[in-house]
Design a protein around this nucleic acid. Structure first.
Length: 420
RNA sequence: GUGGGUGUAGCUCAGUUGGUUAGAGUGCCGGGUUGUGGCCCCGGAGGCCGAGGGUUCAAAUCCCUUCACUCACCCCA
């Protein structure tokens, strides 16, 4: 019989790893809550239209990476490639804007993009996603960036590289795009084929190219920061000033452009050297105008996403989770097995991790099992102990053994274990 | 979608210029005198050498095809 395997680019998260996931999740909840962010959970599927309108029809994500299928009633549905669109949809749908001026939300869960998998990139991957609606002041940019840094540091990450940039707005970006195209036309033939194509489709993407010759051409290209309108310039200056005051280290990377069409003004990214080619650990930016594009009120927005798997690969002290057992019951013989089983069931109901072997194996073998399960204590008994009503309780660390009376056995074990 | 690398035991990997019954470490199970774990010693189970085809007296080894994994490009978290 042929084995059925997981889908390419999808991963099982095994028991030895799940505690690490839980740990990071609880740090996120803790840190975000102190900034006033509340958790929202949105579906992993949406109508395809939602992503087309938010992310942009001509982006790679929408053009070739989405898992889209036709439902039985002919409706086009898509497994979410990112969370922002869904959160905005929910924000609008539940009229959250009328409940409060500023809304702070976060969510976490799986995202889906049909790319070729490689290090730090999977078809199902997980993101922690943060969104702040209803405030266009630079302080909210700073708050969100600071929270991101705070969170990553709380996870134990060091040597983070924060890069920020301003992408301009609807008013000033078109002029910049044109200037870039004009500049590139001069040396069009020296550009790599990809960049020649980008010139037409999405000129700003040329800044992302890693080809040696393109990099040297782009080094002298116009900089977005020289084309910002007064509003964008003031906004960006304020963001930088606050970050300086807060001693948040960052680099301005005027070549940083982001792959989702909706970003305006502040864009930021956190990179790590531990990741390989896909070195972007978290990224986000401002998206004023997107909420109204999706049918909501004209409110500002800013947010970011953190790659969960990428974050985990950056963590320095990742440990595989081991077994941990309070009490192992080594029962010898049929009578002992029966008593032991009843005891195990009762202990578990009392919240104590109790384990035993249901087949009547040799004591040596049961002791080995107890050791493997990292048990703190092992209760040892057979016919002799039952007849004498005196059971042996071995402390596995000290090797001391004490005698426990069969009467009130449950309570005395609970007391001993809870005292530790 | 395009390249490169790798596929041998549950896991990590050896395997010579093609040559007997394919190995090690680790893990798993059992044993080392009656009922006491970790260390040590002994034994056992576990492989269609990724799959299919070809060359040859003979293929894990050489050739072709294919699949999977992986890294990189594209792009992004």
């Amino acid at each position: 019989m042929e084995k059925i395997t997981v889908i390419k680019g999808f991963k099982d998260i095994l028991p030895e790893d799940t505690p690490n996931w839980c740990r990071v999740e609880s740090i996120a909840r803790l840190v975000f809550s102190s900034y006033g962010f509340r958790e929202i959970r949105v579906p992993i599927m949406e109508k395809t239209e939602l992503f087309k309108r938010s992310i942009g029809e001509t982006t790679d994500i929408v053009e070739k990476e989405m898992y889209t299928f036709c439902d039985r009633d002919e409706e086009l549905l898509t497994l979410r490639p990112e969370a922002t669109a869904s959160v905005i949809r929910a924000y609008i749908e539940h009229n959250m804007f009328s409940a409060e001026q500023v809304t702070r939300l976060f969510t976490l869960g799986p995202m889906f993009r049909r790319e070729r998998p490689q290090k730090g990139r999977f078809r199902q991957f997980h993101q922690i996603d943060v969104e702040l609606f209803g405030d266009d002041k630079p302080q909210s940019d700073v708050e969100v960036i600071l929270m991101l840094v705070h969170f990553l540091e709380s996870c134990g990450l060091t040597q983070l590289a924060l890069e920020i940039n301003s992408l301009g707005c609807k008013a000033c970006r078109p002029a910049f795009s044109k200037a870039v195209v004009d500049y590139l036309k001069g040396s069009e033939k020296e550009l790599c084929p990809d960049c020649q194509r980008r010139m037409i489709t999405n000129p700003l993407r040329v800044f992302d190219c890693k080809v040696e010759s393109c990099i040297s051409i782009i080094a002298h290209a116009p900089r977005i920061l020289d084309y910002l309108c007064t509003g964008c310039e003031d906004h960006f200056a304020a963001v930088k000033s606050y970050l300086n005051d807060l001693h948040v280290k960052y680099e301005v990377n005027s070549a940083m452009v982001r792959g989702l069409d909706y970003y305006v003004r502040t864009a930021f990214e956190v990179k790590s050297g531990a990741l390989g080619a896909q070195n972007s650990l978290a990224g986000g930016g401002r998206y004023d105008g997107l909420v109204s594009d999706l049918g909501g009120p004209d409110v500002a927005g800013i947010g970011f996403g953190i790659g969960f798997e990428r974050l985990l690969t950056c963590l320095p002290d990742l440990e595989k989770s081991k077994y941990r057992t309070d009490l192992f019951i080594a029962a010898l013989g049929q009578r002992a097995q029966k008593i032991g089983f009843m005891l195990a069931c009762q202990l578990r109901r009392a919240g104590i991790t109790a384990a035993m072997d249901y087949s009547d194996k040799s004591l040596k073998s049961q002791m080995k099992r107890a050791d493997k399960l990292n048990s703190s204590y092992t209760l040892i008994f057979g016919d002799k102990e039952i007849d004498e009503k005196r059971l042996e309780l071995r402390n596995m660390n000290t090797k001391n053994q004490q005698v426990l009376p069969l009467d009130n056995l449950l309570d005395s074990i609970i007391n001993i274990i809870k005292e530790r």
